[in-house]
Design a protein around this nucleic acid. Structure first.
Lengths: 228, 228
DNA sequence: GGCGGTTGTAACAAAACTGTCGCGGATCGG
DNA sequence: CCGATCCGCGACAGTTTTGTTACAACCGCC
């Protein structure tokens, strides 16, 4: 199972270190910064799966960071958990309004935070939390690398598996070849963009074995998506 | 945003009431029953958007209800969240194979259940996820590139799609050919201005399939606009 | 080193879409 | 009613985008 990458944005060094330890102890990869501007850069470059964001940080308020994340286009759906000092209803509301997925009020137990992280990941990225993915008639066991259609197991090559997984994590959404290259091959791979087509074809061939309906929709000039 | 209707099938009265309260508190319309047979009837009549189904109910096991829902034709794609007592991997598999969209193992927090409900709805009904454009009887799912009129899907070419999107983002406003050229083709394209007409015609042809009313208004000497 | 399976590319074929033209009907202001 | 525009329509050739196939390089593994 692929480990989820968590970005911690916290400018109080002792607390940052505490969080770092507990989160990585729970089996996540951790990157950290104390600075809001840097956080935005790190999000671009490291593509974390979730951000833990202190409401009160120096260079840029947490709420502003959150707002900017929501305007980042490709990363706009990045889950954010806010750490707030007060539990005032007011703050909770404002936090959720700017697009935080959850919030934790200080003081909190690290264990609780870890639980929340897992819950949010389970909700937003089922695959990283080791659960079963299901879209239509297709099921994928992400821990055992098993894929089935209508209960019938399907044999997939590694790349086909990764493409399918990427699609199943975003069912119905049309993904451009560029997005697929980034998501499946990695951000910095100099692969021909048309190569995506070939693998899509292979994935189709493997999944539509009998005379079954095609599971992948081609959207001209846009990309591919999983059929509902 | 239109409220989603949730059907709860749970035969333990205290738990049913608890669920009822939390789900409706979260802003959903709730209907409930303790009986499997009745659940199927309610689905036919009330057309809920999602079903929360206890694995162990009396008259008909949850798993059997789920199976029948999947054979209901029109309602076959109804999302189902299963409540299971055990967390055995085995049950998870069986649950997903019979067509549940998600499952929650008891004990669970009502908050988590609400999160899952929202997550499943987001996945199955893009209308709730804010990436949906609506103007009159036309809906456009911008993340999945789906366009529908009166619920009927409409097939559009790339340029027609971009024009319609541009229009839907500015409903009612009259846009000159020049504006459309800038907005849809890009500021620096040396396209004949009359080409806009042709694409508008193609868009019309695609959208007014049956004898439906024209969705685009021609404003002589000014341009085009979307009809309200 | 040989082997089965996988991967990235190139090249070609097929399909879908695009832009342009010219014609004729519609509309408008006198 | 008339001329001047403006707009809708059908056709069409050119382009772009996608599907398909074949092939050489590569990989881990024995």
């Amino acid at each position: 199972m692929q480990r989820a990458k968590i970005l911690i944005v916290e400018d109080d060094p002792p607390l940052a270190e505490l969080l770092h330890w507990h989160i990585s102890q729970a089996g996540f990869d951790v990157i950290a910064t104390a600075d809001g501007e840097e956080a935005l850069l790190l999000i671009e470059e490291e593509r974390p799966d979730l951000v833990i964001l202190d409401w009160m940080i120096e260079s840029l308020s947490g709420i502003e960071v959150c707002r900017r994340i929501r305007r980042m286009g490709e990363m706009a759906s990045l889950p954010v958990i806010m750490l707030t000092a007060r539990s005032a209803e007011d703050d909770r509301l404002r936090g959720l309004e700017t697009g935080a997925d959850d919030y934790v009020t200080k003081p909190f137990s690290p264990a609780e935070l870890v639980l929340r992280v897992k819950a949010v990941l389970r909700r937003t990225r089922p695959a990283v939390s080791g659960e079963m993915l299901k879209v239509g008639s297709i099921t994928m066991d992400t821990s055992g690398y098993h894929v089935a259609r209508d209960g019938e197991p399907v044999q997939l090559g590694p790349t086909e598996y990764r493409i399918l997984r990427y699609l199943m994590e975003r069912p119905g959404r049309v993904l451009s070849r560029m997005q697929l290259l980034d998501g499946v091959w990695g951000r910095d791979s100099d692969i021909e963009i048309r190569t995506v087509d070939v693998h899509i074809r292979r994935l189709r061939a493997a999944m539509n074995g009998d005379g079954k309906k095609d599971i992948i929709r081609t959207v001209r000039a846009a990309g591919y998506s999983l059929n509902p």
